[in-house]
Amino acid sequence: MVSTAHNKIEVQDLSIHYGAHKALGNVSLTVRKNEIFGIIGPANSGKTSFLNAVNRMDMMRPNMNVSGTVRIDGIETRSWRNVYALRRKIGVVFPLPVGLPLTVYDNVALAPRLAGTAGSRADLNELVERCLRRAALWDEVKDRLTHLGSLLSGGQQQRLTIARALSQSPEILMLDEFSIAVDPVTTMRIEDVLKELKEEVTIILVTNLVQQANRLADRTAFFLNGECVEIDDTETLFSGSAKDPRTNDYIGGKFG
């Protein structure tokens, strides 16, 4: 496959096994630069495994076997010797908010500090404020920057993890069912944030809410039981003209 300038991630024949159990089989897809790429599908369809393969979190899981290739900007991820540098390019937001047991400030400042790009205190202050503003959290926590991040409310913690993911200036942002523990109002605020962010980063949005993909994603993939059933423009997929009947059934709410 020849990589073209507007393809950010190219995945070819990606298969993931946990021991003998197959979580994902022969998935090939491309994610374009600055799009929101939605992945929908019921539980156990391999969505999270897919994300873990992209930023090579399989290294943390001895029984997770990944085959096939993932290219980011045309470079195969497995050829990166410094996997930490690869992960710094990719921000991740997990299903349940993980406010690390650090202060709000330190949560956001962690990534630049780890990378050694923190710079002066004033620069760091500015970065923290910018990231918190972008995650629509600044106004709520600006007087509580020294409080423990793990003591914020669920919705605030989730926006904190988004701010944290942004602080590493990622090229790619992967969100894994981010709204599962977040109230609807906060969800809508985060969705607005994502629409703005797409100008700068490429976003992979894994969601169990079909309508969320419809609202946000430019293109959407439907995963089912470890198989990528269909990928198409979101509009096409949701207009009832999906090619595979299973996709129509899932989107139409007949199962899942």
């Binding site: 930490y84 993980v98 780890l114």
Partner: peptide, 19 residues
């Protein structure tokens, strides 16, 4: 916590030391 730190690009030692 460990996964969140590693996803931010923390090395094993940084994960242990900082988180």
């Amino acid at each position: 916590y460990r996964e969140a730190a590693e996803a931010l690009g923390a090395t094993r030692w940084q994960t242990i030391h900082k988180v």
